[in-house]
């Protein structure tokens, strides 16, 4: 794994009510998805890209925290500075979910869990990556 990924087995990240997270993590399932997508499907260069793409997919699919499947303890966490060095991830979340403006990185955790789960499932279901990420060409073309 990349050097900016820290092993935090069985660590539960405390939820702060006032400040956003500076480190984000994934559940064991989410981590499994990342490993699968990076190592097996090899669509992503590393876990950070997979994480960010998962967030984008969840946003694109307009998912809410309620859609989060049951997950077990967080295992891996990324430094926010590594994950979002240019703040684009934060901007994206705020753009699509203005209500998450206060804690976009905290929200990114469940968004990533959902997005990664969707990608994994759909890839396993035989969909093309481009279909998963960009939608079907016809649909895309017909979209006004």
């Amino acid at each position: 794994m990349e050097d900016f990924e820290l092993e935090l087995d069985e660590v539960v990240i405390a939820d702060d009510v006032t400040t956003d997270k500076t480190q984000v993590g994934l559940s064991l399932e989410g981590n499994d998805h990342v490993a699968n997508l990076v190592d097996n499907y090899r669509w992503f260069k590393d876990g950070l890209d997979a994480y960010r793409t998962g967030v984008a997919v969840a946003l694109a699919r307009n998912k809410s925290e309620v859609d989060l499947p049951p997950v077990t303890n967080k295992k891996t966490k990324y430094s926010v500075s590594s994950l979002d060095p240019d703040g684009r991830l934060r901007e994206l979340i705020i753009t699509f979910r203005p209500e998450l403006e206060q804690k976009p990185y905290s929200a990114s955790e469940w968004l990533a869990e959902i997005g990664l789960s969707i990608i994994r499932e759909e890839l396993d279901g035989g969909k093309l990556l481009s279909e998963i990420l960009l939608g079907s060409e016809i649909t895309n073309a017909d979209t006004p």
Partner: peptide
């Protein structure tokens, strides 16, 4: 694949491209 990886690294927000438009 590597080219796609690079593309996704540079444009990881591709899934929201339609919504962005």
């Amino acid at each position: 694949r590597k080219e796609i990886q690079v593309a996704l690294h540079e444009s990881w927000w591709a899934p929201v491209s339609t919504q962005v438009e």
